[in-house]
Design a protein around this nucleic acid. Structure first.
Lengths: 170, 170
DNA sequence: CAGTATCCTGTCCGATACTG
DNA sequence: CAGTATCGGACAGGATACTG
């Protein structure tokens, strides 16, 4: 997962993919959201090879998603603690959980989200913070932001002619 | 991106990662959500090699995310149309756009989401559909669903002792 | 326990050439 | 235009051994 070279891509979706796009990274973050912080916890949970885990943790730390914190000297021991940026990734994980449950769990989900204090099951849905209206492929579209490059604007203009987006059932 | 072999993993997040985890797949879906359907549209937009694009489109079609539809005979031409399952992936993309904008767009976003009819900018936030309360790492947790395996229950029980999850600023 | 160091394999991916 | 075929490189990822 590196794009050509150099800085992150302009598209925020592509930048996200480039930062956490290796699939181990997503699963590591999934576990970190549950409270895991230690090397061995991740390793046991994921069955990942230790060198790969070290690589992924380093990359996520370099990306500002984990903070590597010394919790013991002699011997030196580190734990990997989510930063605010890392914790803010939770909605992406939760959206994936929701999609997976809706489309793969035929006989009922194996895992779902619940409120920490009440224990009540949560049904994740993405809405606009102001209107609280659901955001989906029918009602939302991408538009150029203030910092959009000319190329980005051109792309988006090209795409604007295509709406409404085609779908298989009409 | 294939796990060992065989069926999808039990965890809905892992199942999602396995299905769309290659980073090209996410970007293809991003473009499909904008209305792209043709091979050449994807290729030009992404700068992807044709063989890779063919592979990814085939995989996404086999996964029930695209429907490959003949839109012209002589010569035979196909377009790749999102299924309902594919369109339902939009919240994941939008959540990634939101995270990318919040953490990478220092001088303002290059791309944002807007309402199709009003054009008003949208601020994507994940909430519970019943309570409309935001779902984040502090308030939500994963619990075993009705179809959880014993191993999954054991994992989640292990994790339950760790809450509240550690974070770098307290 | 928490990694680092090596080696190896699979495959993702790009480049290019070719076809109806 | 919409792909398929083939080649080669880079690297993700696994297995194993080793260290403080």
């Amino acid at each position: 997962m590196q794009f050509k070279l150099g800085p992150l891509p302009e598209c925020p979706c592509a930048a996200t993919v480039e930062t956490v796009g290796e699939w181990w990274s997503i699963l590591i973050l999934r576990d970190a959201m549950q409270g895991f912080t230690r090397f061995e916890q991740f390793q046991r949970s994921l069955g990942i090879a230790p060198n790969m885990l070290a690589r992924r943790l380093k990359h996520l730390t370099d990306s500002g998603i984990f903070e590597r914190r010394l919790y013991s000297t002699r011997p030196a021991r580190h734990e990997y603690v989510l930063t605010e940026k890392g914790r803010d990734f939770f909605p992406v994980i939760a959206a994936m959980v929701g999609w997976g449950n809706r489309h793969f769990a035929k006989d009922g989900p194996a895992l779902l989200l619940a409120d920490r204090s009440s224990g009540r099951a949560l049904d994740p849905v993405l809405v606009d913070s102001a209107s609280l209206q659901p955001i989906d492929a029918d009602t939302a579209m991408a538009v150029a932001g203030p910092q959009a490059s000319p190329q980005m604007r051109e792309r988006l203009a090209m795409v604007a002619a295509l709406r409404p987006i085609p779908s298989s059932n009409g």
